[in-house]
Design a protein around this nucleic acid. Structure first.
Lengths: 239, 239
DNA sequence: TATCTATACTTGTATAGACAAGTAGTATCG
DNA sequence: CGATACTACTTGTCTATACAAGTATAGATA
């Protein structure tokens, strides 16, 4: 078993290989994953290296290991929308993308504002701004406003939000590492009332979110129509 | 370096020791943690064992490691209230516990109900039920109702919720592994209106939560007074 | 038939040693 | 003085081996 010239994350290669097999469908949920010993042989590695790869995949929730039995592909849980806000009604249909009839882009612009400070930017720095109304079968259900740090997503404004939602696009280009949500029940402003076609005294859900991606901040706020119920699914992390 | 008779989670002892030093204040944020080599010597372990301990503590966010430099105590982030709902105003003061004047226990009982089904229980099985109103300087801000699977917390009803909040107690006895939140803006029922001293048309936040702990379910719902803003902090997990 | 037992396999933990790679400080040289 | 090389220390990765401990299965036993 020859020592590699550059011991550079061999365990990473093993991990990727297993993940590839899972994502390609070669290994299906509950299927048996090769044992540490076999993986070590395949990759010309020691068992400890294969062990590390499988241990990390366990922590990441992709496989399940049972002492004395073996390693198996974990059943994927429906938490893909992790910390993502989705209408329950549309949770499933949303998966395939956006229908242009469901979105109405009200604003898409670059501006400077005092908001800069809250986003770890200097006053005067440019910020991307967008306002979008989401509809479900022509009924407006969400009024969403975003302020984006251009460094996070330089091509944000060039996107066609009738084809890809800002959420989808941003998740794609910038890994969200941490999120803070502030939630409030409100009755809302005239401009929004009109967009959502609701009456002044109806209770709306207001969700403000700040997300961090490598110390860069994006803020996002949505107003949700009365009666719409939203779902927030998250895994619990113990400290 | 003698091999221990029973290799039983020596790395766990090292972890606990470091955590103890951090929590006791012996090691403060940014302080240097003993190097792998030194820890290994102290515990009569090999470097790999110390390495595993420190690696896991890194993943848990308690320390920061820099190759070539050393290991340091991480600055605690204010996300201890992970996926826990807290009034922003009280976020800090809450840390020390509960003042009895801030809580009003309306109900604390055992019952059987059709809710059992939603909690992976058989119809007819006993369920613990509690209703509590939280107040901030005598102003009611939260109406919270809980249904608990007795298997999760057998001594739930015996707790004195004037001394420990249900959240605190439950987190203590049952590790929450997954949570689902459903959030909605509502105008609420008479009984609740009265407890929260609000008018019928005021917008309230309603949060329903189901948590899982080893396949056992607890449900929790709170109604939040108008104007109260709540904060939900979570770390993002990529799959 | 039901129960125990050996064994073959798995994962979990631990060791001792090795080299790679990054950082900070010190000594040296031009 | 400034750049360079060296050194001491750190964490990161890897190996080869060992024993502990959990599980399943086949075969022997009562």
């Amino acid at each position: 078993m020859a020592r590699p010239e550059q011991p550079f994350a061999l365990y990473g290669k093993i991990k990727k290989s297993v993940v590839r097999d899972i994502e390609s469908g070669k290994l299906k949920p509950d299927d048996r994953v090769p044992s540490e010993t076999k993986l070590a042989q395949s990759f010309n590695a020691s068992r400890m290296t294969a062990n590390r790869a499988l241990k990390e995949l366990t922590e990441e929730g992709r496989i399940i290991r049972v002492q004395g039995v073996g390693t198996f592909v974990a059943r994927p849980k429906p938490d893909a929308a992790l910390l993502e806000i989705k209408s329950i009604a549309k949770e499933i249909s949303d998966w395939g993308g956006v229908h242009s009839s469901e979105v109405l882009v009200l604003r898409k612009e670059e501006l400077t504002s005092k908001i800069a400070q809250k986003m770890n930017l200097k006053p005067g720095d440019a910020i991307f701004h967008s306002v979008i109304v989401h509809r479900d079968r022509d009924v407006p259900v969400q009024y969403s406003e975003r302020f984006i740090n251009p460094k996070v997503a330089p091509f944000y404004l060039e996107q066609d939000f009738y084809k890809i939602t800002p959420s989808e696009y941003l998740l794609d280009v910038a890994p969200v590492q941490e999120a803070e949500h502030i939630i409030e029940a409100v009755t809302c402003k005239k401009e929004i009332l009109k967009s959502l076609k609701i009456k002044p005294d109806e209770p709306c859900l207001c969700l403000k979110r700040r997300t961090w991606s490598f110390d860069m901040v994006a803020t996002y706020s949505i107003i949700v129509s009365p009666g719409s119920r939203y779902k927030l699914v998250g895994k619990f992390i113990r400290r």
